[in-house]
Design a protein around this nucleic acid. Structure first.
Length: 586
RNA sequence: CGGGGUGUAGCGCAGCUUGGUAGCGUGCCACGUUCGGGACGUGGAGGUCGCAGGUUCGAAUCCUGUCACCCCGACCA
């Protein structure tokens, strides 16, 4: 370490909030170089390459073949799939000296598809699995949390090519298994959740989430069965439809000063003419209607109304996940001004839907089933309508999973309670289907000599993000604690005593012997650095085994300390090499 | 996109209200002492005060713009 390009920091960097970011910077693993861009320092680069190596080995072991594309790509290919537009502001665009458009690739579906089209034309060549480990660029609105969300990051992306749907399912399953092995080897805890496909398109997709609170994804897990899903992808269980015969007729009531659900419920429970015959009204008896605007990739706006039970908020991420690539933006005062039929605070189904006065598309939560009756806005200030019944008094234009998911909501599969947690997306696997192959004309001849569009899968692992995710899972109050296969070294040797003490010579000899035995050594041979600093740095850096050569040497012993447990043992000098080899192997 | 906060030496910060030779701690360099849990003494190096304009005899400080970072919010009927 006396010559290692490393400087640890005594204090936390002020711009780092999350543990991995703080400790990777403090430990001299990374330095911020640009908004959302980080430089890897020697120890960090060793860690990074260890993670990359594991990913590569697992991909190779699964029989996938590695290729490598440029990150700088011409606009053309992305035009064919419309992603030049759909990717929106997140795409880094640039021009060459002649004014031709280029982009820094956020992912490489198009290029892989074109490459296969270039070389293959027969079903006999399929299935094919190819991958690359590449730097990706996404112009994130808000890079954050160090390596967890950068604008430049490394992703392993694979693509599978099959002649038919069964083949795609097999390829998908192969990747899924390879990912399970990869994350197990990386010692990253993960949950596989159902997901939505977003800008990537395609049908089935699952995410690998590391369950960590600083993660940006929210997912649900069933407390009883194996159901798990990103909240964006949860499909609620709708109640059974109710017979329309004999239901109360709708009636409009004056409900002055009830701009919110709570004031409305309170007013109705407090008035004899409005009270529920058997119980109190609750927010869940109301239907609230939220108006938003969809911003389409071509820049046009479309108003959209969403109806959800009044005890739930609209979860914009869920809405966006289903309506992508359109973005959801706020419906503003000027939009209300343009639509006088929308009475803020008292919007009801009467004004909504394509057959009604505003013509605004109206989608409702699946809980709004035929025959369900609601208290909702009457489209006049200070008035609400009760017993407004779905399928009799109003008909929306469709359903949407828009309501936020609550802790304890019923599992769609088994109806037990769901629990909500946060996670970091470390992998995502998609059955893309034929979207890209069709757009780019990737076809092969089948057994009958007929041209068939190839079906594809795409599969990603965030390699640089995995480094940060692993760091997140191994921190304690002293610093990091790497899994051995990822650690920058197997053994961190701390020398105490004066530079002239025998501890120095003995340590160098020990380091040489251990290296000869195949172990990776980090030797803290800094002179004139006090022992306290060396101990603290060793704990900060997080090499799994710390060896202290010091006082004990006079009695023929060397201390071996396990970074994670803190357990220490004194080992005789003549047994130390064998002991450490044993420790590092197990 | 909106609101708030911050930007001064590698790192953590003060100075700004009330304009007048840029400071503290830590880290770094030299020498000496110390040497198992962030030692001590003496002497030193290191900063276009985020950037660009403006006001002024004079700007880290006042004004305008801009960039970056951190936090919160984004529809609440």
């Amino acid at each position: 370490m006396s010559t290692l390009f490393l400087r640890t920091l005594r204090e936390d960097p002020s711009d780092a909030e999350v543990a991995s970011h703080r400790l990777l910077v403090r430990g001299g693993y990374i330095r911020r170089a640009a908004p959302g861009g980080y430089t890897w320092l020697p120890l960090g680069w060793i860690v990074y390459r260890n993670v990359e190596r594991i990913v590569r080995e697992e991909m190779d072991a699964a029989g996938f073949q590695e290729v490598h594309f440029p990150a700088l790509l011409p606009r053309e290919a992305y035009e064919a799939t419309n992603r030049w537009t759909e990717y929106g502001d997140n795409l880094f665009r640039l021009q060459d000296r002649r004014g031709n458009d280029f982009l820094l690739a956020p992912t490489h579906e198009e290029m892989f598809t074109l490459l296969v089209k270039d070389l293959y034309s027969s079903y006999k060549d399929l299935p094919l699995h190819i991958y690359q480990i590449q730097t990706k660029y996404r112009d994130e609105a808000r890079p954050r949390a160090g390596l967890l969300r950068g604008r430049e990051f490394v992703m392993k992306d694979s693509y599978s090519f099959d002649i038919d749907d069964d083949g795609l399912r097999r390829s998908y399953e192969q990747h899924r298994q390879a990912y399970i092995k990869t994350f197990e080897r990386l010692k990253l805890p993960f949950v596989i959740v159902s997901a939505v496909s977003g800008a990537m398109g395609g049908s089935a997709s699952e995410e690998f989430l590391a369950p960590i609170d600083v993660g940006e994804d929210t997912f649900v897990r069933c407390t009883t069965c194996d159901y798990a899903a990103n909240t964006e992808a949860v499909q609620v269980r709708p109640p059974a439809a109710i017979e329309l015969d004999g239901l109360m007729p709708a009636r409009v009531e004056d409900t002055p000063d009830t701009p919110t659900i709570q004031t409305l419920v309170d007013l109705m429970n407090g008035r004899d003419d409005l009270r529920h015959p058997a119980r109190d009204w609750t927010a869940a008896d109301t239907l609230k209607n939220v108006v938003v605007k969809l911003k389409h990739p071509d820049g046009t706006f479309e108003p959209l109304a969403i109806g959800v039970p009044g005890d739930r908020e609209v979860d914009l991420k869920r809405v966006e996940a289903q309506l992508g690539p359109a973005e959801v933006v706020a419906f503003e005062a000027e939009d209300f001004a343009k639509n006088p039929a929308l009475v803020k605070g008292y919007i009801g189904p009467g004004a909504l839907g394509e057959n009604n006065s505003t013509g605004i598309r109206y989608l409702v939560d699946p809980r709004v089933v035929s025959g369900s009756a609601w208290i909702t806005g009457a489209d006049q200030p200070g008035r609400h309508v009760m017993h407004l019944t779905m399928g009799r008094d109003f008909t929306p234009d469709g359903l949407i999973e828009a309501a936020e998911i609550h802790h304890g909501d019923p599992c769609p599969k088994c109806a037990s309670a769901l629990q909500i947690a946060r996670g970091i997306e470390i992998g995502h696997i998609f059955q893309l289907g034929r979207r890209y192959a069709a757009a780019l004309g990737l076809t092969v001849l089948d057994q009958n000599g007929k041209s068939q569009v190839v079906t594809m899968g795409s599969y990603g692992i965030g390699v640089s993000r995995a480094v940060a995710s692993i760091a997140e899972t191994v921190v304690d109050d002293k610093g990091l604690c790497w899994p051995r296969e990822i650690s920058p070294a197997d053994v961190h040797i701390v020398i105490t005593g004066k530079p002239t003490d025998p501890t120095f010579a003995a340590s160098e000899e020990l380091a040489a012997s251990l290296e000869a035995a195949g172990l990776r050594i980090l030797l803290d041979d800094r002179k004139g650095v006090s022992p306290g600093i060396k101990f603290n740095d060793a704990e900060l850096l997080g090499v799994p085994t710390i060896v202290v050569v010091g006082k004990g040497l006079a009695n023929g012993t060397i201390e071996v300390k396990d970074r994670k447990s803190g357990d220490r043992v004194d080992v005789a000098v003549d047994e130390i090499v064998a002991h450490l080899v044993e420790v590092c192997r197990s």
